[in-house]
């Protein structure tokens, strides 16, 4: 075992001391889909001491093209992603302590992880959860590594300092709609690229090399070969309720979050979008059109057929999903369709 990490320790920015720090570290990965599973693979192999994995979904066959930890058997048996991840991780490195949380990552949970971890890695697929991670990170003073990918595009930024603009400064209002993997697809190279950037940031932070952490947002399209690094310093807002002078951490307040409720016996779930997000009938219609999903519109609602379910968007922004009873399934569907 003694030279298992020899080639990693030879890398001079890491070294024996860096390796020691990785082994003492606790990293939380929020979301074990594409990014989360690639990051978990890299971090477990690198010898991180403790990984906390949070995800509410099961492995599905359509995950396999981009989610590196999972097998056909996992999909056939519908194993929770966190459990399938843990099994694989302990095959590649039995020494990693893996803690699995098979649940929706809400504010309460994310605050718990922020308290227990050295750093959080973003493996989520929606802005709402990222705003929670952002607020928990600022409140509990631990960094998080934003990563996102769609199509062939990767975006990564480390958030680790109070003095810089935070994620909410960049995104003061939740976009009503945006491209998601469900609308414009995603290819695995974009996933691996993003996770690689994120894990390098984790290494740098844990090794104490904050100087080299990404001050800029990296934007890279692996298909068109565009590579950009955008500065964000001008976006710092002194009145930001997350990182500004008067901090409210709005995403940590229960009333701010998307609400889900299943209608017992009616095989449907009601969703009320997060505070600050407004979905209009036009938004609903646009999403259906973009994804070429069957839909119809009345003055009162837009109905979209998606994956065996009927999704109804009402004029006041409320959503009903018919054909689903499980709230977690509805959450996944909601973020797939609306980001």
């Amino acid at each position: 075992m003694n030279d298992r990490f020899i080639q990693q320790k030879r890398f001079q920015m890491l070294g024996t001391e860096g390796q020691q720090r990785l082994q003492e570290a606790c990293v939380t990965i929020i979301g074990c889909g594409a990014l989360g599973s690639a990051a978990a693979d890299i971090l477990a192999r690198a010898g991180i001491g403790t990984l906390i994995l949070v995800d509410r979904d099961y492995v599905e066959i359509s995950n396999l093209h981009r989610q590196t930890l999972y097998t056909e058997q996992d999909a056939n048996e519908m194993i929770p992603k966190v459990e399938a991840a843990k099994r694989r991780i302990n095959q590649v490195n039995q020494h990693v302590q893996v803690k699995t949380v098979f649940d929706h990552a809400d504010a309460e949970l994310i605050e718990q992880f922020a308290k227990r971890s050295d750093i959080m890695v973003d493996g989520t697929d929606n802005f709402e959860t990222r705003l929670i991670v952002n607020d928990a990170s600022l409140k509990h003073q631990i960094p998080w590594i934003y990563g996102a990918c769609v199509g062939s595009t990767s975006v990564v930024k480390s958030f680790y300092s109070d003095s810089s603009a935070c994620f909410r400064c960049l995104l003061p209002a939740l976009p009503a709609t945006n491209d998601t993997c469900a609308t414009v697809g995603v290819i695995a190279p974009a996933v691996y690229m993003t996770a690689a950037f994120q894990c390098a940031e984790v290494f740098k932070y844990l090794c104490g090399d904050k100087d080299n952490m990404k001050k800029k947002l990296v934007w890279l399209d692996v298909w068109t070969n565009q590579q950009h690094q955008f500065g964000i310093e001008n976006m710092k807002r002194s009145d930001c309720p997350s990182c500004g002078e008067k901090r409210m951490y709005p995403a940590l307040q229960r009333s701010a979050q998307t609400k889900y409720a299943s209608f017992c016996g009616r095989d449907s779930v009601q969703i009320i979008p997060a505070k600050g997000r407004t979905l209009t009938l036009d938004d609903g219609e646009n999403i259906a059109k973009k994804q070429r999903l069957p839909s119809k519109r009345t003055p009162y609602f837009v109905q979209i057929e998606y994956g065996g379910s009927r999704v109804m968007i009402f004029a006041n922004g409320r959503i009903h999903v018919h054909g689903i009873q499980d709230v977690n399934e509805a959450k996944s569907l909601y973020h797939q369709l609306f980001g």
């Binding site: 594409a34 697929d125 802005f127 491209d179 934007w219 690094q229 976006m235 980001g339």
Partner: peptide, 29 residues
């Protein structure tokens, strides 16, 4: 909106010769 590879607020001045990019935020993962 990024002007010369720096994200900016809507109040920012744009001058001749500047390079301006419109970049949608990315949420997938």
């Amino acid at each position: 909106v990024a002007v010369n590879e720096e994200y900016v607020l809507e109040t920012e001045e744009i001058n001749p010769g500047d390079i301006v990019a419109f970049i949608p935020p990315v949420s997938g993962g």
